[in-house]
Amino acid sequence: MSDAKIELRNVHKRFGSKVVLDGINLTVPKGQSLVVIGGSGTGKSVMIKCVLGIIRPDRGEIFVDGKNVLKMDSGQREAVLRKFGMLFQGAALFDSLAVWENVAFGLIQGRRMKRKAAKDIAIEKLAKVGLGPEVGELYPAELSGGMQKRVGLARAIAVDPEIIFFDEPTTGLDPITADVINELIVDRVKDLGATTLSITHDMSSVRKIADRVAMIYKGKIIWEGPREKIDDSGNDYVDQFIHGRAEGPIGMDVLKP
């Protein structure tokens, strides 16, 4: 397991009496793109937030580059966080800042770079996601959903992260825009040689960006394998999910509250 970039061992998390993560075991090999699929409310977002340290798991271990991040002090943690970039589901752009300031945020605040130098990099990163320098002067509220996602992607890659998380990168986008975002993700990740962990329930996104796929159900990883295997996984849960069938082993208690 020496080539594991991220490793989760037996991670548990509950909110009140609701068990969200029930012993997650997951390994993301270096330079690979792992996509976790699963229905709404199965703990996908909580899992990523545990790795980022936004949520603290009740039990278990999380390793990044072989070091247990749960045992670090805040200084070491911040050093690890510098390796991360993340694209949020709703883009989560800072609406009080111009687009370029959003993209340059990690450089200016996180790395104390001069504003002017950071702006140059921001404009370069915006170009990489297909946005012109004039967009940099706009505010997030003036952008469409697809453009916000692009800016979010530019912000995630601005600090040249080693690891990038994608939280439902195509949710809420039309199929064509979604495909554009998927391609941008693949291209930019290839540029950086980054390791990525994504969560989604969009199968076209899975087929485009994944090297490996894992399925989460009721707080556990129930299947994992290479992308080519998802169509003959031999797992009824995976089959039901990728074909989007209401009938199957995944009970209605999960689909309907």
Binding site: I54, E78, G90, F94, G110
Partner: peptide
């Protein structure tokens, strides 16, 4: 900022 995940985004940007 909390409900739109902007506060979480700060953490991922080393802030």
């Amino acid at each position: 900022m909390r409900v739109t995940e902007q506060i979480d985004a700060l953490t991922t940007l080393s802030t």
